[in-house]
C-alpha cells in the first residue's frame, strides 16, 4: 500500500519537474519573441509612461541585465529555480514567490469553487438523464450542453455579468472583497466544465444501469434505490472522476481568462498583467505555478480514483 503511494508520488513528482522545465522554457522563449523593447515597457510599468525616458529604460536594462545574451538570462533563472527561488519581480518591489503566495490562495479559492459548482450541476443532471435516457430532459440537456460548451468562457462570463450584475443587480460586476464576488466567476468556469462532464456522467450511469451486475443486484432482492446508491453510483463515479481530472486543463486555462475578466487577483490575473508589463520573472513564476496546480489537482484525482477503484491499487 505504502509502496504504491510512494510510487504515485514519485511519478507525479517527476511530472512536476518536467512541467516546470517546459513551462519555464516556453514562457521564456515567448517573452523573448515578443517585439519591442522590454526595458522600455518595464520602465513604463515601474514609473508610468509620463515619468520615464530613455535614460530610465537604460537604467532598467542595466539593472536587470536585459542586454546579456538570452541564454545567460535563462541560465540564471534556472539556477535560481533549482534553489527554489523565483527571483524578484521586474516591476513591483518584492519577490515573485511572495506575490504568488498571496495570489495562489485566491486562485485556489476560485478553482475549487468552480470545481464544486460544476460537480453540483453535473452530477444531478448526469444521474437524472442517465436514469431516464432519451427523455425530454436528456434531449434538452444535450442541446444545452452543446450550446454552453460552444461559447468561449469569457463570453459566458460577460453574459452572466450582463444578466446578473447589470440587469438584475444581484452580484457585483468584478472584484473580490466578499463571497458575493466569488459567485459569478465560479459559475462561469463551473458551467463550462459541467457542460461536458454531465454528459460523461450520464453515459457512465447509463452503462452501469445496463450492466449484468445491476440486474443481478435487483434480482437478489435489493430495491432500485439501494442498488443505485450501493452499486450504480460508485461504478459510474469512476469514469466521471477520471474525466473531471481531464478537465483540469480547461480549468487552468479558464482561470487565466476569468480572473482577468472579473479582476480577481489570482495567479491568472497576475500572469496577464506580467505579460503586458514584460515582467519576465513574474510570467515564468505564475505560469510555473499554474502548471504545478495542474499536476497537483491530477494527483488528487489519482488518489480519488484508487479510493473508488481498489483494483488498480492492488493488481
Amino acid at each position: 500500500m505504502y509502496k504504491k503511494l510512494i510510487a504515485a508520488l514519485l511519478k507525479r513528482g517527476l511530472q512536476a519537474l518536467i512541467v516546470a522545465l517546459i513551462v519555464g522554457l516556453v514562457s521564456f522563449a515567448m517573452m523573448q519573441a515578443l517585439p519591442g523593447d522590454a526595458a522600455f515597457r518595464i520602465a513604463a510599468g515601474r514609473y508610468g509612461y509620463d515619468l520615464m525616458d530613455a535614460a530610465a529604460a537604460e537604467a532598467v536594462r542595466q539593472e536587470l541585465g536585459l542586454d546579456r545574451h538570452w541564454s545567460l538570462q535563462l541560465f540564471d533563472w534556472l539556477k535560481a529555480l533549482a534553489q527554489f527561488n523565483l527571483g524578484e519581480s521586474f516591476i513591483y518591489r518584492g519577490s515573485v514567490s511572495e506575490k504568488i503566495a498571496v495570489q495562489l490562495g485566491h486562485t485556489l479559492t476560485l478553482s475549487l469553487s468552480a470545481l464544486f459548482v460544476s460537480i453540483l450541476i453535473a452530477f444531478p443532471i448526469g444521474i437524472y438523464t442517465g436514469l431516464n435516457p432519451n427523455g425530454w430532459a436528456d434531449k434538452f440537456f444535450l442541446q444545452l450542453s452543446i450550446f454552453v460548451r460552444a461559447i468561449p468562457p469569457f463570453a459566458v462570463g460577460l453574459t452572466l455579468v450582463l444578466i446578473f450584475s447589470v440587469h438584475l443587480k444581484l452580484f457585483p460586476v468584478a472584484g473580490f472583497r466578499s463571497f458575493h464576488h466569488l459567485i459569478l466567476p465560479a459559475f462561469t468556469l463551473g458551467i463550462g466544465m459541467a457542460a461536458v462532464s454531465n454528459r460523461v456522467i450520464r453515459d457512465s450511469v447509463l452503462e452501469a444501469m445496463h450492466s449484468d451486475w445491476q440486474l443481478f443486484s435487483r434480482i437478489k432482492g435489493l430495491p432500485s434505490g439501494l442498488t443505485l446508491r450501493a452499486h450504480v453510483l460508485r461504478n459510474a463515479a469512476l469514469p466521471s472522476v477520471t474525466y473531471i481530472g481531464v478537465q483540469m486543463a480547461y480549468l487552468i486555462e479558464g482561470v487565466v481568462i476569468i480572473e482577468t475578466l472579473f479582476a480577481w487577483p489570482g495567479i491568472g490575473h497576475a500572469l496577464i498583467h506580467a505579460i503586458f508589463g514584460r515582467d519576465i520573472a513574474m510570467v515564468q513564476g505564475t505560469a510555473l505555478t499554474l502548471g504545478l496546480i495542474y499536476v497537483g489537482l491530477n494527483l488528487v484525482i489519482d488518489f480519488l480514483c484508487s479510493f473508488i477503484d481498489p483494483r488498480s491499487a492492488k493488481s
Binding site: 450492466s211 449484468d212 451486475w213 440486474l215 443481478f216 443486484s217 435487483r218 434480482i219 437478489k220 432482492g221 435489493l222 430495491p223 432500485s224 450501493a230 452499486h231 460508485r234 461504478n235 469512476l238 473508488i308 477503484d309 481498489p310 483494483r311
Partner: peptide, 24 residues
C-alpha cells in the same frame, strides 16, 4: 414484478463474473 425478486423468485446468473459488482 421486481418486488418479487429475491423474496419469492431469484435467479442464478449466466455469467457470474459479470454479475457481481466489480468494485465491491
Amino acid at each position: 414484478r421486481a418486488a418479487l425478486w429475491g423474496d419469492i423468485i431469484t435467479a442464478l446468473p449466466q455469467e457470474p463474473w459479470l454479475s457481481l459488482d466489480p468494485l465491491m
